[in-house]
Design a protein around this nucleic acid. Structure first.
Length: 300
DNA sequence: ATCCAGGGGGATT
DNA sequence: AATCCCCATGGA
């Protein structure tokens, strides 16, 4: 079904499915060969065929910025290749991009991410939108937007979303920020952005770094979750280390490319399961090996 | 049944 | 500054 309103864009070094399904962004839904996304009041569909990206429901300028197509991922990947231990992850993550999403929506998503998993986070944000969001889109591209700060009712209805202990944090979060707060944060230096983000309920170092990387365009941010801790300990440091030490080490080693490295490691570790986490084999060059040890496919 | 999931926050050591 | 524990669900 190629509507007359469908347009296309030539893309290179880009894998739509890998980028969308890498856990940076949660409001997407597969529709056959296409993906339907909701970003604030935009509802749009994307479909990749080789180096052609077909899209409808958005304008090109927004799409290019949102998908990070205006940034030189090849350059970052070439610099990162100097680190031999990163090569398997980079090879696996060909076409990966770092998205640049809405600040508030990113905050909500990663607030919901605490001790959760991607399918559940996606369900949580969909439920929030269904319950509190206003109708957006037009034609066959209609959906509910994620509620803006203050629009989540504090009347007990939130419990139907089954957020667990994250529910109260979300209610407190929407009281602490408003559109002005969010807008002024964007103009601050990165260190200040991080500090202010961490004053918010439910936002610690990891969530703050996710927001810096996936919404504020801070390429040096390096979110450390359990997967990243394990894969860094196994493949790079080759010893145990705490979250703090890993952050420091990655930041000083990877610098401005840390964020891309982190996301490549994340998708690689999840797709290869235990293979990415074993200390025994030296980091081999060559492509990703489908090294799943028994049903340990914690990801898809 | 038991463990763990893209953590945060407060208390204790 | 490192460690413990709890937070509420859900899926394996």
């Amino acid at each position: 079904m190629t509507g007359p309103d469908e347009r296309e864009l030539v893309v290179r070094a880009f894998d739509l499915g890998l980028t969308l399904e890498s856990g940076q962004f949660f409001r997407y839904e597969r529709r056959g060969e296409a993906y339907r996304l909701v970003v604030r009041d935009r509802v749009f569909e994307l479909r990749q065929e080789g180096d052609h990206l077909r899209y409808r429901g958005v304008d090109e300028a927004f799409l290019v910025r949102f998908l990070g197509l205006d940034r030189d991922s090849d350059l970052a990947r070439r610099r990162l290749r100097r680190h031999a231990w990163l090569r398997p992850a980079l090879d696996h993550a060909r076409g990966l991009r770092i998205v640049r999403q809405d600040l508030w929506e990113c905050l909500v998503g990663f607030l919901c991410s605490a001790v959760s998993n991607i399918p559940r986070i996606r369900r949580n944000v969909e439920d929030l939108a269904a319950l509190y969001g206003r109708r957006v889109g037009s034609g066959d591209l209609v959906a509910r937007a994620l509620p803006r700060p203050g629009k989540i009712r504090n009347d007990g209805s939130l419990r139907s979303v089954r957020l667990g202990f994250r529910g109260q944090r979300l209610l407190e979060l929407q009281q602490r920020v408003d559109e002005d707060w969010l807008q002024s944060l964007e103009a601050l230096p990165a260190a200040d952005q991080r500090r202010w983000l961490m004053t918010l309920p439910g936002v610690g170092e990891k969530v703050a770094d996710c927001v810096l990387l996936f919404a504020l365009g801070r390429d040096e941010a390096f979110p450390v979750d359990v997967w990243i801790r394990r894969v860094i300990e196994a493949r790079a440091l080759r010893r145990k280390a705490g979250f703090d030490k890993i952050r420091e080490w990655a930041s000083s080693t990877l610098g401005g490319d840390a964020g891309y490295a982190q996301q490549a490691l994340f998708v690689w570790a999840r797709h290869t399961g235990r293979g990415a986490l074993s200390h025994d084999e030296p980091p081999s060059r060559g492509a990703s090996r489908p090294n799943r040890t028994r049903g340990a496919s914690g990801a898809r």
